[in-house]
Design a protein around this nucleic acid. Structure first.
Lengths: 347, 347
DNA sequence: ATGAAAGCGCTAACAT
DNA sequence: ATGTTAGCGCTTTCAT
């Protein structure tokens, strides 16, 4: 408390520059630069002396100065079009992971579905001379390209660009739905219903279509028409009510989301239908809290968002290094089996 | 497809510099700089001409060059010590919000509880000459300072630094617990139990102590000893089992987390105990999916993480502008009442 | 193997 | 009101 001012002053201490390091080591700045960056040919002894001087002074290179010289910032921008949410996080983690390994930092921009903010962020990213940009968002309908003729490469992750030449990495949701249905078929279920989100939602449509197709491939039809509703537990419960009241004969339900599935599980439980014995259950998203909180624990489809983020980052790095990839990449899903589809020992 | 190469080349186009703008406008670079930054005294006509030239050339200032000159980057680093998770997100959103308004960008660093990564990130942030750093993390026990004598200010958000002079913004968890208990008292409950996370967890201890104290202030004691367990739904269910089997007389439960509360709600429901009539329920975190998925919807304590992120960012901006604030700030919680504590019309 | 010097793009102090 | 100029800290030829 008494040292407030002094403290403040100490913290304001200026970092050492390369010429100070050079001076201390008794060499020129050029030599110091080479020594610190492992370039050129130097006497090992000199190199060491410079490194020690740098150490001693706590030297950290000034990125701004370096960027000004080299034209590269080793920074990429990440724009999430909708707010940072449940889907953006794993994408960010994956991207951050792949980029961090490449010594690249991430500038985070939350555009909140606001085109104005988006433009603003794009401008600051450009002004910060990022080496590339990753565009992310919740909806995975195609979106209009964030801009054309940018001086840096752009990769879309999770969402895709409506320009097919743009590089996008998306989950193969049809694959996920197929895997869910095939899994249910594999454990012997034949009367499969599909309860999912709003009909106007792209994901709901794609998953439903793929589910029906997968059943068709085995000469089967869904146990009921696709039940469209909301992405909520409440809808899952409600849908079960409808199912039971119509007396539909169903031995499995594939749900469009884990939340729906959880609602379904609860409602079935309360109607004294055993999961998985009477009705097997598969969700979508593999969202930890839902899947683990569910009783029994929920088999689910994992879109591997982290993997998508990682791929996007890798493609971006490739583009930055002069090897751009065009077009859309769909990444396969993974089924994670749990108790809600566990095959029972007894018949 | 046929234009791949040309496309690539166009995208590689170099952005215009201020001297090009100046040349096009027929002025010197100095004048152009003033015109673009609204400094100095210029003929309005000249200013306009420069702005139009900039527009025409799609000029975006080179941040690296500017930073090199001014010493400020308008960038702050955000280090999350544990992985980006449920708690970090709102903090990030809040911080990003407050900073974005101040034209400051956020560099995201996920240190994953790994001291090596943390040091590495700190180094890159310093090399990028960030104007300041926000340190975040899950645990809200005090952590050792990320470093001493940094050339830039640091603010801790959610977690606090063990050095009391460091600036930290944390939730007042005691306040949250008190509010929960007082709310239950206010709706007439007297036999209140507390089910919470692991005893060794700082938050569990703090909340439990405050709850006991709040009861004591009314001359009451908890209906049972504090029930420590895990931060999970399963533990909530299990705890209810224990409660019922011992025949404890309880008319309300304050839970250390929404997940626990949800487990409690489910177990009570299955034991035909009505919530809130027989047992009122309050959670902690106000985590949307838990609180809304719960039947009935869950009254909960909101730590206002976004607000904490925002405050931290504001304090950081203040410190950057030469008005550092020292010490720990505890931010009050908010009770969000829902059906699980709704007072009934009938007696 | 090392040093000298130019210049990346910008701002700001000083001239005019 | 506008132009000139000197760096900010670094990398990178080009000399030596």
């Amino acid at each position: 408390m008494p040292e407030t001012l002094e403290e403040t002053l100490r913290k304001t201490v200026r970092a050492a520059t390369i010429s100070e390091v050079a001076a201390l080591a008794g060499v020129s700045t050029g030599t110091a630069s080479k020594a610190l960056n492992g370039r050129g040919s130097l006497r090992p002894e000199t190199r060491l002396r410079v490194q020690q001087a740098a150490e001693q002074l706590g030297f950290v290179v000034n990125g701004a100065a370096r960027s000004l010289q080299t034209g590269r910032t080793y920074t990429v921008g990440m724009i999430t079009t909708d707010s940072i949410g449940r889907f953006s996080i794993p994408l960010m983690i994956g991207a951050e992971d792949a980029l961090g390994a490449g010594q690249v930092s991430v500038l985070l921009c939350d555009a909140r579905d606001d085109p104005i903010r988006e433009k603003y962020y794009l401008r600051t990213l450009l002004s910060r001379k990022v080496d590339g940009i990753i565009v992310t968002g919740r909806r995975n309908q195609a979106r209009t390209p964030i801009a054309t003729d940018l001086p840096v490469p752009v990769v879309y992750a999770f969402i895709s660009s409506s320009d097919p030449r743009d590089c996008s990495v998306v989950p193969d949701e049809s694959d996920g739905a197929r895997k869910a249905v095939r899994h249910l078929l594999a454990i012997g279920r034949r009367r499969i219903a599909h309860i999912t989100g709003p009909e106007h939602h792209h994901s709901a449509q794609v998953r439903a279509a793929a589910a029906i197709e997968a059943l068709g491939a085995e000469g089967l039809r869904p146990a009921t028409d696709t039940m469209y509703g909301e992405w909520s537990e409440a809808w899952g419960r409600q849908a079960v009510g409808m199912l039971l009241s119509t007396g539909a004969d169903v031995d499995a339900v594939f749900c469009g989301s884990d939340q729906i599935a959880r609602g379904v599980a609860e409602a079935l439980r309360e109607a004294d239908r055993d999961v998985p014995r009477d009705v097997a259950l598969v969700g979508f998203d593999n969202w930890d809290v839902m899947v683990e909180g569910c009783r029994p624990q929920l088999t689910s489809i994992d879109m591997d968002l982290e993997g998508i983020g990682r791929s996007a980052a890798e493609l971006l790095l490739a583009a930055i290094n002069g090897e751009p990839v065009q077009g859309q990449r769909a990444q396969l899903c993974r089924l994670v089996p749990r108790a809600s589809t566990a095959v029972l020992a007894e018949s």
